[in-house]
Computed example of a mutant assay.
Amino acid sequence: MLTMDDIIRDGHPSLREVAKEVQLPASDEDIEILASMLEYVKNSQNAEKVKKYGLRPGIGLAAPQINVLKRMIAIHLNDEKGETHSYALFNPKVASHSVEKAYLTSGEGCLSVDESIPGFVPRYARVTVKGFDIEGKEVKLRLKGLLSIVFQHEIDHLNGIMFYDHINKKDPFSVPENAIGIER
Rank of each mutant, 00 (worst) to 15 (best):
I31N: 14
G107P: 03
P57Q: 07
L55P: 01
Y164E: 10
K93V: 00
K70R: 14
R56L: 11
L146P: 07
R126E: 15
A95V: 07
E154V: 05
R142Q: 07
H85D: 02
A125Q: 09
I8R: 07
P64D: 06
S36I: 00
Y103D: 00
E183R: 14
F90L: 06
E138P: 12
D171I: 08
K170Y: 08
S116Q: 12
P176D: 12
T105C: 02
Q65A: 05
T3E: 00
K170G: 07
S86G: 05
H85Y: 13
E39W: 00
S116V: 11
P176G: 10
Y53K: 13
E39A: 15
K42S: 08
G136I: 13
K170E: 15
N178Y: 14
G109D: 10
N159W: 03
G58K: 00
F120Y: 15
H166T: 00
Y124N: 05
K81C: 03
A88T: 01
T105Y: 05
R126M: 15
I8C: 05
F132S: 08
G181I: 03
I117D: 00
A47C: 03
D156P: 08
L55N: 06
I59L: 13
Q65K: 04
H85Q: 07
E177G: 09
L146Q: 10
I59P: 04
L146A: 09
E183W: 01
L55M: 07
L34Y: 02
